[in-house]
Amino acid sequence: MGKSQFCDEILPLYRHVTSKWTTCEDLELKQAIILALGPMMSLLLHKEEHQDKVFEQIPWLLEQYKEDVNVFHVTKSLRQLLEVSGEYKILLPKGKFQAICSALHDRICSPTQQLIMENQMELCYCILLLARSSPDDLIAFLHSQLKIKNETVRVASLNLLTAIIGADCK
């Protein structure tokens, strides 16, 4: 079964999950949704007619950073989405791109959040994927962060710029 055919099979399940289950309060179910959402979103991106449905779920996924869930899984699902979008040259809508940048940057800058090394690497990789997909937009975002008076935010922005410059962005 090809990706395109599999997309058609997954779509009803995706619609059910996103319309019925994303409003749940059960932490275990929410964690399972997060784990399933990344692969489903990545698969559905392969068909242009499903892309808007996928992009609609980005705010929900980003909102999970504020919930009491395993944030590594949120970042991993986001990474899966960004990898496919970059591989197939699917541009994220401008507002979604900015929302992702802000959420990732906030996670990296969060002084109260002790980031495990694995999640820190995922967050940085997501930023690198954003740099590959739309370098001008990411640089503009980081430039805006450098104007903020908070030193932690500026240092994190400079560290991300350093990582992007040092990465092989082919």
Rank of each mutant, 00 (worst) to 15 (best):
M40C: 02
C109S: 00
V153T: 09
D52P: 02
V74A: 11
E48R: 10
G166A: 14
I90L: 02
T22F: 03
I100P: 07
R132E: 13
Q51F: 05
L61F: 00
D136T: 12
D52S: 11
S77L: 04
S134D: 13
T22A: 06
T152P: 03
L161M: 13
I58A: 05
L138F: 08
I10G: 00
C7W: 02
L142Q: 10
L44E: 09
A131T: 05
C124R: 15
K20Q: 07
L78I: 12
F6D: 11
A167F: 14
N159L: 13
F141G: 04
T23N: 12
L115I: 11
H143R: 09
L91P: 04
Q5T: 15
D26T: 08
K94V: 12
K30E: 03
I139C: 05
I33P: 10
S133G: 00
S134W: 01
N119S: 11
I165M: 05
I116H: 11
S102R: 01
E9V: 14
I165F: 12
L62H: 00
C124Y: 14
D168Y: 01
L29V: 12
L37F: 10
I127F: 01
F141N: 03
E63D: 14
L29W: 07
I90W: 06
W21T: 01
L45F: 02
P111N: 01
L129G: 08
L82V: 07
E63N: 13
C24S: 15
F72A: 00
P59E: 04
D8Q: 12
A36Y: 03
A32S: 05
L82D: 06
L29S: 07
W21S: 01
R15S: 10
D137T: 09
Q98A: 08
K20W: 06
C109H: 03
L78S: 01
L161I: 12
T75A: 15
W60L: 05
H105S: 01
I116C: 10
K3Y: 05
R79G: 13
S110M: 12
R132G: 09
L158M: 07
E28L: 10
I90F: 06
N70M: 09
Q57V: 10
Q145R: 10
I165D: 02
P12Y: 04
M121W: 11
G38Y: 02
L92F: 00
M121G: 10
I90T: 04
C124I: 15
Q98P: 00
L78F: 00
I108H: 10
A131K: 01
Y88S: 12
L81C: 10
G95E: 13
E118T: 12
E56W: 02
Q64Y: 06
S133R: 08
H46A: 05
L142V: 03
E56L: 14
M41E: 07
K76A: 02
L115H: 10
K30A: 09
S134L: 04
A36K: 04
L123C: 07
I33Q: 04
Q145W: 06
K147W: 14
K66I: 07
Q120A: 15
K3S: 12
S133W: 00
H143T: 13
Q113Y: 15
V74Y: 09
I34R: 04
V155N: 02
H16Y: 07
D137M: 03
L161R: 02
